[in-house]
Amino acid sequence: MTLYRLNRLFNPRSGRALDVAVDHGFFGERSFLTGIENMDAVVSTLVDAGPDAVQLTIGQARRLQSVPGKQKPGLVLRTDIANVYGNPLDAQLFSIHVPHAIEEAVRLDAVAVCVNLMELPGHPEVREANIRSILELRREATRYGMPLMIEPLVMQDNSTAGGYMVDGDIDKIVTLVRQGVELGADLIKADPSTDLGEYGRVIEVAGDVPVLVRGGGRVDDRTLLERTVAVLAAGARGIVYGRNIVQHENPAGITAALLAVLHDGADVEQGLAILAESDASHADASRAGASHADASLAGRNGASA
């Protein structure tokens, strides 16, 4: 079946995509809210920055889809909720998907939906719940022609690494990615591996299913761009970054750098130069705004004297 909605996800020039994940509030963890407290401001910034897609929840998707015009980023709708990111873990773990999630995605004009497939050490019941959700979503996604992005997430033990920490073992990643493909993924959102030189194995095992690589925890700009260049060279069709963009001091600048790497073939140094230029422009604008405010205040004070 042809999934026409993906034409709005992948850039027609490069065939690649940058999806910015801003769905962290779904999971009920306070630390996940840093940088995304004001969602109107976050979405506005991202729309101006122009990634290919923004990943949002059912409660926040309207903030993107209410923006007028045809040029805004596509919507990727997060469909499942889990409580597996705390440290310590809750006594009872769960993972559930939104009822009628695919119908909601159609109504919201999403380009795809995203669902987890998690390997959490010592908790096979979470993976079972994920598989049940995936099978239900796959049935409805087929009915409505909605692309299904499966996110194989290989996690370290929370007691030693804390919530949401990636286990970069390539063998574990390859195994879980292949299970996602077997379950009917139209897209795979995969972990980066510790040794990026081996990432071609992930692309190989996914076959003709496009792989987008998730960002994981916050890293410095050079590391982020080096990782991006490496996974694209291995054959990845895009990236799904969240905190490395929305918690960045210059979200628009890092987005511009990443888009240049994805769609224009920029290398790491060129990406860093784009970011530096954006930083300088941002600083100039801030200084100009401060000078204007000082002049206005001086004028008011003079008028009052």
Rank of each mutant, 00 (worst) to 15 (best):
Glu140Gly: 00
Val166Pro: 00
Gly180His: 03
Val181Thr: 07
Ala190Leu: 04
Phe32Gln: 13
Thr228Glu: 01
Leu120His: 09
Val246Gly: 02
Leu18Glu: 00
Ala285Met: 05
Arg138Asp: 05
Gln55Cys: 10
Asn38Cys: 02
Ser95Trp: 02
Leu183Trp: 11
Ile254Phe: 04
Val211Lys: 09
Asp157Trp: 06
Lys70Phe: 03
Leu176His: 07
Gly50Ala: 15
Ala112Thr: 13
Phe26Trp: 08
Leu259Arg: 14
Asn250Arg: 14
Asn116Tyr: 11
Ala101Asp: 05
Arg237Ser: 11
Arg300Lys: 09
Asp40Leu: 10
Gly207Asp: 09
Gly299Pro: 12
Met149Phe: 01
Ile274Ala: 10
Arg300Thr: 15
Ala257Ile: 08
Leu232Arg: 01
Gln92Pro: 01
Ala105Asp: 09
Asp191Glu: 12
Ala280Lys: 12
Met146Gly: 09
Gly299Ser: 15
Leu56Asn: 05
Ile239His: 12
Pro73Trp: 14
Pro51Ser: 10
Tyr85Gln: 08
Ala276Lys: 12
Val43Gly: 07
Arg143Trp: 11
Asn87Tyr: 06
Thr175Tyr: 06
Ser95Leu: 13
Leu297Tyr: 13
His97Trp: 09
Arg62Val: 06
Ala252Lys: 13
Leu137Ser: 09
Leu46Ala: 00
Leu196His: 14
Leu183His: 09
Gly168Met: 14
Ala256Glu: 14
